[in-house]
């Protein structure tokens, strides 16, 4: 394969990784707080729809803001039923995913009845780093990206700093590792967990909006195609660390980009193989991570080894 193709694949991978990184950082907070959000898929698809809809009215920035807003609303609802009504968070998460997939399809079909052409909105404009983007190979990969890719990278650093240096970040970790001790030390367990889910929801909604408003410019039902589940896998693979999440997201995105672009080239594997590779590799990495974690756990504690 030619150099140009590899450049296109890697540049595409960075773009595809951005939504995973946004949603993944959010879920990183949720999992560090000892919780899990299985509603990510639903939040992302609602963010993807709302993003396009709002962008068609007020431009791409409003679209992104709408994605954040809808993710927040869903997270508030989840917090309410989980903390106030004591519902099981796994069931509620799956239900939110069902709800999001259904509601986004419903609203989309109302907005664009079958037979009408889909609405395409203006995507987030490229800033144009001028001459830098013209450097061969490195230029298109590093300097020709959508601003959202840079924003995702920036957010990684912010998330790392928040987790490490702020009172809130430490509270999240304390609640996730030992809620009883955290409570004794005066950390408000529920409030911290709820805040983590709000961050997770907002960033999942944003991640969904980044898919549509960031690159594609239009919405179709089921456009997220399981990205929410990939985010969950990536966060577990990356042990909820920003850098691990970023690497996991890049791995999945690279394989996806490779699958998209290399189908047309001389390699003669069936297209389904290319489409399946990202999920297969994610599963394999998940297995390896789980195995390593199990070993670490059994070395240090020797409990629950059965």
């Amino acid at each position: 394969m030619s150099v140009e193709l590899w450049v296109a694949i890697i540049a595409g991978a960075l773009a595809l990784a951005a939504p995973l990184v946004f949603a993944g950082i959010g879920e990183g907070f949720v999992e560090r707080a000892g919780r899990i959000n299985l509603g990510i898929e639903g939040m992302m698809i609602m963010g993807a729809f709302t993003g396009v809809w709002a962008a068609s009215i007020g431009g791409p920035l409003l679209g992104l803001a709408a994605g954040v807003a809808v993710g927040l609303v869903l997270a508030v609802g989840m917090n309410l039923v989980i903390y106030r009504l004591h519902a099981n968070e796994i069931v509620v998460g799956l239900a939110v995913t069902m709800l999001g997939l259904g509601l986004s399809t419903y609203l989309y079909q109302l907005w664009i009845p079958s037979g009408q052409t889909n609405v395409t909105v203006q995507t987030v404009p490229r800033t144009g780093l001028g001459p830098l983007a013209d450097i061969p190979v490195v230029g298109p990969i590093l300097f020709g990206q959508s601003p959202l890719v840079y924003a995702a990278a920036l957010l990684l650093v912010v998330a790392w700093a928040v987790m490490r240096f702020t009172r809130f970040g430490l509270a999240v970790q304390a609640v996730g590792t030992d809620p009883a001790s955290a409570a004794l030390r005066g950390v408000r367990v529920q409030k911290t967990g709820a805040s983590a889910l709000l961050i997770g929801g907002a960033l999942a909604g944003l991640g969904g909006a980044v898919i549509t408003v960031g690159t594609i410019g239009s919405f179709t039902p089921d456009i997220t195609a399981g990205r929410g589940y990939i985010v969950l896998a990536v966060v577990i693979m990356g042990r909820s660390r920003p850098i691990g999440i970023a690497l996991g997201a890049l791995l999945f995105a690279f394989l996806q980009s490779f699958a998209l672009l290399s189908q047309s080239t001389a390699l003669t594997l069936p297209s389904e193989v290319y489409q399946s590779i990202p999920y297969l590799v994610t599963l394999v990495v998940l297995v390896i991570t789980s195995r390593n974690q199990l070993r670490r756990l059994s070395r240090t504690t020797r409990v629950r080894a059965t």
Binding site: I36, R296, R299, T300, V303
Partner: peptide
């Protein structure tokens, strides 16, 4: 909660698995 492996914040994911 299982005992925390790997120091502060070191094993929350593994532990969440257990949870």
């Amino acid at each position: 909660l299982a005992p925390e492996p790997g120091g502060a914040g070191g094993g929350s994911v593994a532990e969440r698995e257990v949870t």
